[in-house]
Amino acid sequence: MIELVSVSKTFNPGRHNEYAAVREVSLGFEPGRLTALRGPSGSGKTTLLSLIGLLARPTAGRVRLDGRDVSGLPERFMTELRRAHIGFVFQSFNLIRGLSVLDNVLVPALPTGRPHAQARQRALELLDFLGLGARADHPVQSLSGGEAQRTAIARALINDPQVVIADEPTANLDSELSRQVLGILATLRDQGRTVILSSHDPLVFELGIADRVLAMHDGRLTDA
């Protein structure tokens, strides 16, 4: 369970270009639920996701993981927690060009010290589950948008995280592929994972896959 308590994030504090991206947000995310964040560009969705996903530290407030305050941990410990508990799916896929689909999926598992054969087996299972088994050895730059996003999902799942965070996962996909990706995220939720996504794609909300929809504006949560 992830919990945010009065969390704020300010960039360039004390400077002329100081900017408060998230203000006083308190939230909890339970396992087996899919939460969708909506809001216009610049509303603070991505920054909030980075705080939930332990990619950034809040300027004020607390982030708790399973009841433990993790917002002040040193980078190494924060990374270990993120690696073990959280998987990320990015808007622009963020795959590493030149590497194969399989190698990309394996990237988060490499520093864990997990046996390579075991990680490879898990990666191949995930690729099969996502319909990419036949593409495992292909370079990622040869993939279609839908395949690239499914590869990114497989990568997010390689360390078997309890929480999956997707930032605008359908932004670069057409409607059919968006449905496919949202379906996969719903399946992950059905498997008991916490799924949090941000989007301003109407399809996300029309499909009704979200258990909860939160709206953001100017860094604050507003009524959905």
Partner: peptide
Amino acid sequence: EIGILKAVGWDSGD
């Protein structure tokens, strides 16, 4: 690439 590695769970030491 380094940004992606860090975002998917590598720390500075890795």
